[in-house]
């Protein structure tokens, strides 16, 4: 399997935060959703991938290029959009489009014009008066019209109205029509990630919590409502979170299978087994991590 992004054992120390042992592999032609709470290390990781931050240890390969050593070559074919990027306020979007076109030979005029319409943006408007959503859309336009082989997007849908979000997701999916193109994006909107990602990587407190294909990932999680035979002694190795109310315990587990269900049935009366969406899994992981820290 060809990898668009491959990093091993990345670490970066900051006075109040440590990124530790980050391994990340993103297969070519897929969408990787990068999920984690605020301050978990998503943006830092993306910056390292782009060669904007140098890791203390570890190796990064982006589109086969070592980063940051071969970043000039890699960046020809990588589109990066982060929330804190700025446009030239006194210039129009058209100025930015012409500028990008002069730097990137793969710039596609026709596609850029189509995106202008779809994103509801005006070429001649100065970017000074842009709303947050317009700024994000403008930045995505500038990245997408270059037709990069790899898109690295930090929170591309945050703060957008539903129709703009919808449009962005559609554009990300359209990118995949070409099997050699790849998308890595982070989002707080777990619905977006759940919908379009082939792989999901969870980052918590500077560490990769889990990274796997989405179907396997969602399949391994369940919420089980159970009355344990022996309240004090459930086998808790498979429990991520548990909440007791009366005789009923509601547990979440990330090692669910038909066999594990049989094991649960031996320990008590199972009242219900429910699938969880990414948001619920996210919350369970964060709760579990907080408990372990305290």
């Amino acid at each position: 399997m060809e990898l668009a992004i491959e990093c091993q054992k990345l670490s970066k120390h900051y006075p109040h935060f440590d990124l530790s042992n980050i391994d990340l592999s993103v297969p070519t032609g897929s969408v990787m959703g990068f999920v984690g709470p605020n301050g978990a290390g998503k943006s830092t990781t993306m910056r390292i991938l782009m060669g904007l931050v140098t890791p203390d240890t570890g190796t990064v390969k982006v589109l086969g290029c070592d980063m940051p050593g071969q970043q000039v070559r890699a960046k020809q074919e990588v589109g990066f959009v982060a929330e804190d990027m700025r446009l030239y306020a006194s210039q129009s979007l058209g100025f930015h489009m012409d500028f990008m076109k002069s730097v990137f030979p793969a710039w596609d005029d026709k596609f850029a014009d189509a995106l202008l319409k779809r994103f509801d943006l005006v070429r001649d408007q100065k970017t000074k008066g842009y709303s947050h959503g317009q700024r994000i859309k403008a930045m995505l336009l500038l990245a997408l019209a270059r037709k990069p082989r790899l898109l690295i997007l930090d929170e591309p849908t945050t703060g957008l109205d539903p129709s703009a979000r919808h449009e962005i997701l559609q554009q990300l999916m359209d990118v995949l029509e070409d099997e050699t193109r790849t998308v890595l994006f982070s989002s707080h909107n777990t619905l977006d990630i759940e919908q379009i990602s082939d792989h999901i990587t969870f980052i918590l407190n500077g560490r990769i919590h889990s990274s796997s294909d989405k179907e396997t990932f969602l399949d391994s999680w369940r919420r089980i409502r159970i009355s344990f035979n022996d309240h004090d002694r459930p086998d808790d190795s498979a429990i991520v979170t548990s909440q007791i109310s009366g005789s009923l315990t509601v547990i979440t587990t990330n090692t669910f299978s038909d066999q594990s269900l049989n094991a649960w049935k031996l320990q008590g009366c199972v009242h219900a087994v429910e699938r969880m969406n990414l948001e619920e899994i996210f919350l369970a992981c964060v709760e579990n991590e907080r408990e372990q820290r305290s």
Binding site: H166, L169, M173, L176, E177, I196, S197, E215
Partner: peptide, 17 residues
């Protein structure tokens, strides 16, 4: 699989499954 995924805005892996 890819056409269906793009049309539905759903990941390729989901349609594959």
């Amino acid at each position: 699989i890819r056409e269906m995924a793009i049309a539905l805005k759903v990941s390729v892996i989901t349609v594959k499954r």
